[in-house]
């Protein structure tokens, strides 16, 4: 359980997150969507802070806001011919998509509530107030227990780097 103040902060952040996420998927102008994506990613970083994951909040701001969102905005600007015109931004499956997403939400909520109602459902820790230095602990885990996934992810990043260069360069260069 979070403290009273943290709970209040949580409601504000959750509100901002969900409203900006709705704007991301529904706005006509894709550039405005990208700006709301930045807001949404920032508020998710706030959620990480509430969950005592300060290192991940920093990583979120650096990689998502500083990297991925800026990359999206670049791509939007490079393809701006498509965004300024008054063309439809959503396909004809709007109602079907909403139905699928809403039923998925119902299923997940049902699963969460059912697990909660079972005795000891999620196996909650009795004292969730242990504070540890997260960058130190994450670094230690990455180089001991998770060293194989860590190396695989570095290879994946290299592949993505080379792949992006190969895809984006002009033919004959």
């Amino acid at each position: 359980m979070l403290s009273e103040t943290a709970s209040l902060v949580f409601w504000v952040i959750a509100f901002v997150t969900i409203i900006s996420a709705i704007f991301v998927v529904s706005l006509r102008n894709i550039f405005h969507s990208a700006l709301f994506l930045v807001l949404c990613l920032f508020s998710v970083a706030g959620v990480f802070v509430l969950l005592d994951a300060e290192f991940l909040a920093g990583v979120q701001v650096l990689i998502y806001v500083g990297g991925v969102a800026i990359l999206m905005i670049f791509a939007v600007m490079l393809t701006s011919r498509m965004t300024n015109s008054e063309v439809r931004q959503q396909n004809e499956q709007k109602a079907l998509g909403a139905l699928v997403a809403f039923s998925f939400l119902l299923i997940v909520t049902g699963a969460i509530l059912k697990t909660m109602s079972v005795k000891g459902g999620f196996g909650l820790s009795p004292s969730p107030s242990v504070t540890i230095s997260t960058p130190h602990a994450i670094g230690r885990l990455l180089l001991t227990n998770f060293v194989l996934p860590f190396e695989l992810v570095s290879v994946l990043l290299l592949v993505a780097l080379i792949g992006a260069v190969v895809l984006a360069k002009k033919d004959g260069d």
Binding site: T17, I18, A21, I22, V24, V25, S26, I30, S33, A34, L37, C40, L41, V44, Y64, V68, M72, A75, V76, T79, M82, T83, R88, Q89, Q90, N91, Q93, K94, L96, G97, A98, V100, A101, F102, F104, L105, V108
Partner: peptide, 24 residues
């Protein structure tokens, strides 16, 4: 948040919009 992203990925026509929904 996941379901909003799923709705966006299913209904957006713009490929960049689909990628943004996947980030959500």
């Amino acid at each position: 948040l996941f379901c909003i992203g799923m709705y966006g990925a299913l209904t957006r026509r713009n490929a960049i919009g689909v990628l943004m929904s996947i980030e959500l």
